[in-house]
Design a protein around this nucleic acid. Structure first.
Lengths: 354, 354
DNA sequence: ACGGACAACGTGTACGTTACCATAACGTTG
DNA sequence: CAACGTTATGGTAACGTACACGTTGTCCGT
């Protein structure tokens, strides 16, 4: 009653297990007719390779290069934690994670990849900033046979194996719907983003604008402000925005770099006055949500992203599966009523997974 | 540079691998002093057992009994799909899933468990209805050394290994917060639930009532209606509710059994008039959300629940880990703007995981 | 002093797979 | 026709672990 192995195939066919191995793995040195017989019999017996035995025999160490920025730390630290979690729960294969860190999105990433050109990774995880800049470097990796998985944003046309991120269009659309529900009176909305060259950020704003036009035509939209992930700049821009005559009734912060803006709101005594929807979640943000000063935040689930990204990559390396080229997670809508669940998670990152 | 094995421990200590094996696994026939030395050296070398080798040697088939109800099918089919997904991605061990199905929550479950008393499962997954009724049966399993994991609701005091479910208090609290945001004018709210003896259902209503009192004191709450997961009954109750003089301005449906109620709303031409928040997600519900006739639904992520439940159980069986006794998932808040993501998932269950 | 009982420890084998070497049959070449 | 390459195949050693079994050593009663 035990599952059939290559021995069973060999025995019923009267050949040796060496032959069966050659047939099953497309190795040379076997008569095409024999190969066909073996494959047919394998199918017939419902042969599934015993992965424990395989990985025991091969005992290969898998080296994965992980290229994530340092800033915004709250986000990318969780992403790294997720990657580590996936590595530690994988059974029967030993994985070397090589973390490479560059200052921020689209800053130093390409240089780091080029400097590591001699490294022989089995696979690479990367958080791409500007697809145009980083694209060629990724293509280079792929052409050397190294599969690349993009995390948290995408770099299409880079021939990467897969991309895993929160669905940014939806993320923006949710923000728009929430504003449309809460703000009945006409007014204007502002958006502060990171970097419009980053696909993920651009898409959030597209989703926001599109859904706002659909659901809340009474709300006008100011041109997007780019903070380039720099806290000081974001703070200055927010102050300027809030001090102008026609100040916005609501602000959508589509980057995790939201604290400087909230500080600006406090300084101008507009916190609670202006409706705010933020992105991502970290300890400093929690009290704003708990007190209702921030309406909601759209949690991008970095831990889950990191975990699934490595799972996809490993699955490809070990089993040769072709994953869906894009995988889009649903962001969590975090409100006063459910922040308790998430606050617990971000305090003990990696311990449980939401 | 390869990870140390029992051979390495044995060699550096000048003992045999047999002794190391006895020490590491608490087997008899070893001098306590030797055992201590081995354990210390193992720690020192950072010994991690090679799980591939272990499961190759043991080659045990693991039999898991899965006791879920048939109704509500949309929910429990996804739950089963999640369990299957976890089984198929586990590497190096062959798992026999034995699905047992009873008509509905708290109906035939205990009888089925008793009838299977002779079965020798290595572990059991169960969706408990009434903790009082099913508790003794579960305790019986545990005392026979069979670990039990509760899914989708809990049965505390049953000595189950763990329980995984959506955080029901939060689920109810979210519904209350959404109502409080959308309904500015005073009015009354009704709740229709499944079975108040089911812990999960009771907690949702507690969370709802508590948060409603906090955030929306202008909204009054009618006594909860129990539909006992029966579609016809739910339909009749809804009609009665809607035809009474002081009809509610909003309804919170805390059970997946929501379609009969929505039908009643259509028949009384009150759909869109009365604000509705539902629970869970299935194809029939999608158009209601897409058109805004239903404000939101709180998705309980059955697929994820099933997957993690089996993961927890297997992890315990294979590695002997003690999991957190309760694990609470955050429900997804599904609105017009993000239903697209979920609709894709429920159409192709198991293909991707949100 | 001897055998038996028992504790403590060593040895060998099997798990299913892959990698590699050995071998046999056959054709090609000088 | 000897020498050698090619092709298809068989045989076997690992990989690290678990477990049954065999081997020592010690103590004790007679």
């Amino acid at each position: 009653m035990k599952p059939p192995g290559i021995h069973d195939i060999a025995r019923t066919l009267g050949v040796s297990i060496g032959t069966v191995d050659r047939a099953l793995h497309g190795r040379p040195g076997i008569n095409p007719a024999t190969r066909a017989r073996v494959l047919k019999k394998a199918e017939e017996l419902g042969y599934r390779p015993n992965i424990a035995a395989r990985s025991l025999k091969l005992n290969r160490r898998i080296r994965i290069g992980v290229y994530f920025p340092r800033e915004i730390a709250s986000f990318f630290d969780s992403l790294r934690a997720g990657v580590r979690a996936a590595a530690s729960t994988s059974v029967g294969l030993s994985i070397d994670l090589v973390f490479r860190t560059f200052p921020r999105l689209d800053e130093g990433d390409v240089e780091l990849l080029r400097a590591d050109a001699h490294e022989s990774f089995d696979g690479v995880l990367v958080a791409p900033g500007n697809p145009l800049r980083i694209g060629p470097a990724l293509r280079g990796l792929v052409q050397r046979g190294i599969p690349v998985v993009c995390v948290s944003s995408d770099a299409p046309r880079s021939e990467r194996l897969a991309s895993i991120a929160v669905d940014s269009l939806t993320s923006g659309a949710i923000a728009a719907e929430l504003f449309s529900r809460v703000m009945q009176k006409p007014g204007t909305l502002a958006t502060i983003t990171g970097e419009l060259t980053t696909l993920d950020h651009a898409e959030k704003l597209r989703g926001f604008a599109a859904n706002l036009a659909l659901l809340a035509p009474h709300l006008a939209l100011l041109p997007a402000i780019e903070s380039h992930e720099q806290p000081e700049l974001a703070h200055k821009q927010a102050l300027a925005l809030l001090r102008q005559a026609k100040r916005p009734a609501g602000i959508y912060l589509s980057t995790a770099n939201s604290i400087p803006v909230l500080r600006a709101l406090e300084e101008t005594k507009l916190l609670g006055e202006v409706q705010v929807i933020t992105t991502d979640l970290f300890p400093e943000l929690v009290p704003y949500i708990e007190t209702g000063k921030v309406l909601a935040t759209l949690y991008q689930r970095p831990f889950v992203q990191g975990k699934t990204a490595l799972e996809i990559l490993l699955n490809h390396l070990v089993n040769g599966t072709k994953p869906d080229p894009v995988r889009r997670l649903a962001p969590h809508i975090v409100l006063r009523s459910n922040i308790g669940l998430f606050a617990r998670e971000i305090d003990t990152p990696g311990e449980f997974l939401i």
